[in-house]
Design a protein around this nucleic acid. Structure first.
Length: 275
DNA sequence: GCCCAGGCCTTTC
DNA sequence: GAAAGGCATGGG
């Protein structure tokens, strides 16, 4: 099946390239996007963005791309802070949408992300899926599903080392083991503060990764992950003087409240794309 | 060879 | 509680 949406507030490149997701690839005139065990094709013309997926997956991807939310309000709200760089970032990134990603896939993905670059993160996750996921086809193209936590936990750390995960090998295995043992449902029940506390008890999950997981995997929008790019934005574009990343994050959340996650994405995208 | 990447853990003070 | 060192790997 296929559906379309006004491109103004839903742009494929902006949504996929703003650092929230790693399993997507150039495909024809757009992208192939993989989530959990599903795939879709996404592309755009001047006016509209199109999503093509399996007949039973329309609702899944409508929700995945967060299409029931009004992003005009969010962009206007971001601009209303009257911060020049933010107003600019919200304008050039107004086609960004915060995805509703699978929780367990998000946890593992951001454990892999620490002290790492995006192309390499994508490669490691691809190889995990190729090795442990289920082989499927979509539009004549082979893809692999994201494996269950139990499946990931079965392998020894050396397996992930051989995939190029480096010292994160043990974090991947142990995090998956705990997710498989405890179940993700328990995490879903927690409120934002308790969720973060719980995430911080996982080895390999610190402040920044916990913020990414609670934002991208659990839609806690009062999150402002601070990585090297955000630290740069804070210093160069906000004239900030704090050096502690935790304090920088608190500062931004106190400023942007429930819009923090969206604002963070606009800023990150604009900075990284040098727009 | 260098420095950096959506950082975190352990040790030490 | 803060600061410093170590950590795997690949891209630029």
């Amino acid at each position: 099946m296929k559906f379309d949406y006004d491109r103004t507030y839903f742009d494929p490149k902006e949504t996929l390239e703003c650092g929230q997701v790693f399993r997507f690839f150039p495909f024809e005139n757009g992208y192939l996007v993989l989530s959990k065990d599903k795939a879709c094709r996404i592309y755009a013309d001047e006016k509209k963005t199109y999503v093509e997926c399996g007949d039973g997956d329309g609702e899944y991807f409508y929700n995945y791309f967060d299409l029931s939310r009004d992003y005009k309000t969010i962009v206007d709200e971001a601009k209303s802070f009257n911060i020049p760089f933010l107003s600019h970032a919200a304008e050039v990134g107004k086609g960004i949408r915060l995805l509703n990603q699978n929780e367990e896939e998000t946890v593992i993905s951001f454990v892999v992300s620490q002290n790492n670059n995006i192309p390499r993160i994508k490669g490691i996750l691809s190889r995990i899926c190729e090795g442990l996921g289920e082989r499927k086809e979509f539009l004549g193209k082979t893809f692999y599903t994201f494996p269950s936590s139990a499946r990931i936990a079965e392998k020894e750390r050396e397996y992930y080392r051989a995939l190029g995960a480096g010292y994160r090998d043990i974090f991947i295995k142990e995090t998956a083991a705990r997710l498989a043992r405890d179940g993700v449902e328990n995490l879903k029940k927690l409120d934002g503060d308790d969720l973060k506390k719980e995430l911080l008890t996982f080895k390999g999950i610190g402040e920044k990764v916990a913020d990414c997981i609670r934002l991208f995997g659990f839609k806690k929008c009062d999150s402002f992950p601070v990585d090297t790019w955000v630290e740069r934005i804070y210093k160069e574009d906000f004239g900030g003087t704090l050096t502690d990343r935790k304090k920088i994050g608190k500062y931004f959340v106190s400023l942007f409240g429930e819009y923090s996650g969206y604002v963070q994405q606009y800023l990150f995208f604009a900075k990284r794309e040098n727009l």
